[in-house]
Each structure stands twice: as structure tokens, then as C-alpha cells.
Nucleic acid binder design. Structure first.
Length: 254
DNA sequence: ATGGCTTGAGTGTCAAGA
């Protein structure tokens, strides 16, 4: 099974790009973040024509998540219970015996900002949700845009980013608490050196100099990790005409 | 240099992203 996650930064603005990528890579499950549209505006027909079912948890203008799968997603859950205020950021479904949780973590804007406090609190709620899901689904993948780096290997200029948003110690501790529910960073199962990123700033043309951050993750439970044969960041998808600022991350599971 | 770029909203120019 090929499991992928991609922050597409608007599914409608990215439609030809995402369709072409899906045709080429043929993932079994694709988790999208920042679809930035209501459920009724999600372009499901072209994906269905390629053989995919689409489950969405959309929102006007901001946020929004979707799961595309080659088989019908089951036991779909939309949103973190009690966290409707934070927007459409979580979508869970079972596909091919794998419990898939698709998450778009709050950005937080700046360390100390009210949104930053909300991010840390919300990640605690996410950890509780994941713990509950793991109790009934041993084979589980939590994937998405976490807006947090694990450590300095995930940062192109660690000193410039020291204790800044996406890199602060409390954010990293909150991410560790999510992982401590019983998950593992899939990418680090295979790659230990730094310099591998999933997001590059448009404004500084960060991709040209590989000035990026690794903030999109595939987190796997023990049984899922045991089946994992590799995790790849698809840099080609970050290039070309009108790319998202994020690259997709793909995990191959037995 | 709180900018640089991109998107969605909606026709002016913000808010938000990370």
C-alpha cells in the first residue's frame, strides 16, 4: 500500500497539479490538507474518474482536509471532538485495514501569540484522540502537516530558527507527546541525516537553495512501522508550474 | 527590513500561511 500526505494549499488552485501527480504515483491513500473549500466544492469527479473515493472535511477559505482512496474509506470521523472552533483540521478513516488519521495542525503564527497557546493545547487534544483511536486500531498512521519540526536536523538554519515558531521547545514537546501515544516518525526509520525538508517559503524562494523545514510527517504505530518499506519526500512535485509550498510525503507499507 | 510570495475573499486590499 502506498500512503501519501500533501498540503496542497488550495485543491482548486492545485487541481491539475494534484491530478497529474495522482495519475503518475497512483497512491492507495492520499491525505490532503488545506483544501480551502467547502465539501460541496471539492472537485471529486476528476478524482473519481481516476478510481478514487473522496471523503472531505471542508471549510470555506481556510483549512480543510480530505482523504482520497482507491477503496471506500470506512468509519469516517470528522474533526476533533470539542475543537470545532479551530476549523476543519482532522479527518479519520479506515482503509485496507489501516486506520488513517489526517491532521492539519494549527500554525500558531508566533511564539507567545494566542494562536501559539491554542496550538499547544490543541496538540494535547490530538494526542488524546490518537490514544483513543490506537486502543481500537493497532495498525494506525497519523499523517499530515504538523507545523512542527522534530529537531534541528529538520531545519535548514537552526540558529536562525532557534525557539521560533515551528521549532520552539514547547512545540517539539507537544509533538513528542503525540508520538508517545505509541507512534514512530516513519521518515527517521530510514534516514538519519538532516537536510530533508517538506516545506520551503515562497517569499524567499527557499526551494532554490533547499532552505526548508521538515514539518509534514508520517507517524506509524508499531504494527504499521513493521510493514513500512520506505518513506519518500517527492521533491519533483514541489517544482514546475504553480506548485504548493509543501512537497508530498509517501510511505510504502507491505 | 515583519518584507520577499501565494491564495481566497471580492474589486480594495486584507488575512493567513510558516
Amino acid at each position: 500500500m502506498l500512503l501519501a500526505t500533501w498540503n496542497v494549499n488550495s485543491i482548486r488552485a492545485r487541481l491539475p497539479k494534484v491530478l497529474g501527480w495522482v495519475e503518475k504515483r497512483r497512491p492507495d491513500v492520499l491525505c490532503l490538507q488545506e483544501i480551502k473549500c467547502l465539501d460541496e466544492h471539492f472537485p471529486r469527479e476528476p478524482f473519481e474518474a481516476l478510481g478514487y473515493r473522496c471523503v472531505t472535511h471542508g471549510q470555506k477559505t481556510y483549512n480543510g482536509v480530505a482523504i482520497l482512496a482507491r477503496e471506500e474509506p470506512a468509519d469516517v470521523l470528522r474533526g476533533l471532538p470539542g475543537e470545532e472552533e479551530a476549523g476543519a483540521r482532522v479527518l479519520a478513516a479506515t482503509v485496507g485495514g489501516l486506520r488513517v488519521i489526517n491532521a492539519y495542525v494549527i500554525n500558531g503564527q508566533e511564539v507567545g501569540h494566542a494562536k501559539y497557546g491554542n496550538k499547544l493545547r490543541w496538540m494535547g487534544v490530538l494526542a488524546g484522540f490518537v490514544r483513543g483511536q490506537l486502543a481500537s486500531h493497532a495498525r494506525l498512521a497519523l499523517v499530515g502537516d504538523f507545523n512542527v519540526t522534530f529537531d534541528d536536523r529538520d531545519v535548514y538554519d537552526p540558529e536562525a530558527w532557534r525557539e521560533r515558531i515551528l521549532c520552539s521547545t514547547p512545540e517539539r514537546e507537544a509533538l513528542s507527546a503525540v508520538v508517545a501515544t505509541g507512534l514512530h516518525d516513519g521518515f527517521r526509520r530510514f534516514v538519519s541525516e538532516g537536510g530533508h525538508y517538506t516545506w520551503w517559503d515562497f517569499r524567499t524562494r527557499g526551494f532554490l537553495g533547499n532552505r526548508g523545514l521538515r514539518i509534514d510527517h508520517v507517524l506509524l504505530s508499531e504494527p504499521a512501522l513493521a510493514d513500512c518499506r520506505g518513506v519518500e519526500i517527492d521533491l519533483a512535485a514541489r517544482q514546475g508550474e504553480a506548485p504548493s509550498d509543501h512537497a508530498p510525503v509517501l510511505a510504502t507499507l507491505a
